[in-house]
């Protein structure tokens, strides 16, 4: 069965979605990612959607779910590289991608994740 590869880099999991996903593939990605977070203890998930020409409500829900479940598993999710036309369409559709952080590109996305995780660690040290 087709799978979207998930790369592990230290505390982070990286996913680049290169093709327009059909439903089964998107759902597999959701379960695979959550299992990987649990297995590796990753603190951050970065999803690159720069190759996606459209994000409909189904795809939006999958991204939102990944964010919410990862959050429960103590990992932050950032979505990077959204095309401007996709962003405009998402808002008009009424989808706000709650529960995930977004960043312009991979570099800024990684920066954001590092900051989030650092803040978390600082807070636990103070306790």
């Amino acid at each position: 069965m087709d799978r979207i590869p998930i790369l592990r880099m230290g505390n982070y999991l990286l996913v680049t979605i290169q093709v327009d996903l059909y439903d089964r593939l998107a759902q597999n990605l959701e379960t695979d990612l959550v299992q990987m977070v649990s297995k590796t203890g990753a603190r951050g998930v970065l999803i690159d959607i720069s190759a996606l020409s459209i994000v409909d409500s189904f795809m939006g829900r999958i991204i939102g779910n990944i964010g919410s479940v990862s959050k429960i598993m103590d990992a932050e999710t950032v979505v990077v590289g959204m095309q401007p036309a996709v962003a405009i369409t998402l808002i008009e559709l009424g989808l706000e991608l709650k529960g995930v952080y977004t960043a312009l590109n991979v570099e800024r996305g990684m920066q954001l994740l590092k900051e989030k995780i650092l803040i978390d660690e600082d807070e636990t040290e103070e306790d």
Partner: peptide
């Protein structure tokens, strides 16, 4: 491109 994206998204829904 923006209108294309809107059309295709609507079609997908």
């Amino acid at each position: 491109l923006v209108n294309q994206t809107k059309l295709i998204t609507a079609a997908s829904e």
